[in-house]
């Protein structure tokens, strides 16, 4: 395993996350796409820290990102839940009052 392998996996995860975010209609699936994007960046940070830069800043950063991602998802789920209570659907296509 070299740095390149990690970077390839991370780039693939990032692409999958973006794809999920753009194509999925269910709000919970979109949240999973966002998690994939954040974790692909985490993988990069840790891989660079382990194989490239020779310092621990990247791994430290990854811990911060994990905590922030958790806080972000807590707020996001609350928003999805309130929208679900109003609309009875987790489908993003039906959230279409605001446009123009």
């Amino acid at each position: 395993m070299t740095l390149q392998h990690y970077l390839l996996v991370s780039a693939a995860l990032f692409a999958l996350g973006v794809l999920g975010l753009l194509t999925r209609r269910n709000a919970v699936n979109v949240l999973m796409g966002i998690e994939l994007i954040l974790n692909s960046a985490n993988l990069n940070l840790v891989a660079f820290s382990r194989y490239g830069t020779g310092n621990l800043e990247g791994q430290l950063f990854a811990v911060f990102v994990v905590v922030i991602a958790a806080a972000e998802v807590a707020v996001a789920l609350a928003i999805v839940l309130t929208l679900y209570r109003l609309r009875r659907t987790p489908n993003l296509d039906e959230a279409d009052i605001l446009k123009g």
């Binding site: 707020v75 929208l83 959230a95 009052i97």
Partner: peptide, 11 residues
């Protein structure tokens, strides 16, 4: 619903 939709899109 507008406010919730705004929050979701912003998020």
């Amino acid at each position: 619903p507008e406010s919730q939709e705004a929050a979701l899109k912003y998020f």
